[in-house]
Amino acid sequence: MSLDLARRPAHRSRSVPPPSAGPRRRGRPNFPAGIAATVWLLIVAVPVYFVVITGFRSQDQYIEQGPLDLPTSPTLDNFTSLFDLGFTRFLTNSLVVAFGTVALVLAVALPAAYAIVRNPSRSVRSMFNVFLLGLAVPAQAVIVPIYLIITRLQLYDTLLAIILPTAAFSLPIAIVVLTSTLRDIPGELYEAMTVDGATPARVFGRLVLPLSRPGLVSVGIFVGLGAWNGFLFPLVLTQSQDQRVLPLGLWNFQSQYGTNVPGLMAAVVLSALPVLALYLFGRRHLLSGLAAGFGK
């Protein structure tokens, strides 16, 4: 849906001067929004503060001190003990799932988007419509047959069992976004290469691939985050500790740790670190990736 809108701001931004230029009307205070922003800031900050501060607290301190006090003697024990509980394994699994899904999606979506943009035939057009329709199918509605298919393919309890359906349900949005990206490539460029006698494969390698990089990055990040956070497919399609991904691991810690809230919060902090790294080093890409998919 609405993806057309999603790419519009990004598209337009090229023709608009950077925000810092010129006098801005937003230089004046804006009280109602300021108040709303401040209140919401508190609402966001308190749980985040709680998570971080509690992760560094010992279990004893958590019980003795108030939940929002600063820890008097911060400790890293919670984090080190997580690694004994198989956290590294969960992290690796999640990374495999995220990267595997992204690779698979990009590998099939970009050629498809290329065909959709450059092949005017009716059959290709109707394929595109199938993907558009696919945007509306909620993944959990088909979880029973997916589960049936995965068990019959003997993929149950493998990371591939998570990757395949996750990738399939990311395809519609990936294709829609990549199609928009490829439409932005001026037709003359295609024509010029065609006149030189380039095959579609050559056009794809020389023109489509390099010029669609921003779109690929955005789609990659969006799809990767979705796979990283996915819960339902891992829940239903895997079982063993060896195949467990982070979100399931967190859920499991909740019952394993019981009252050890500090241990649980340390797990939450660690699970956010890879995305935090992405945020710090590629803030623009991350945000554009999020906007590309326009949410789940």
Binding site: Q154, D157, Q239, W251, S255
Partner: peptide, 21 residues
Amino acid sequence: LVTYVNDAYKQKLQVAMGSPA
């Protein structure tokens, strides 16, 4: 010996019985 956590075991067993796994 293969071990599973409590929450998921029943579902996992239900799923696995009758499958090659």
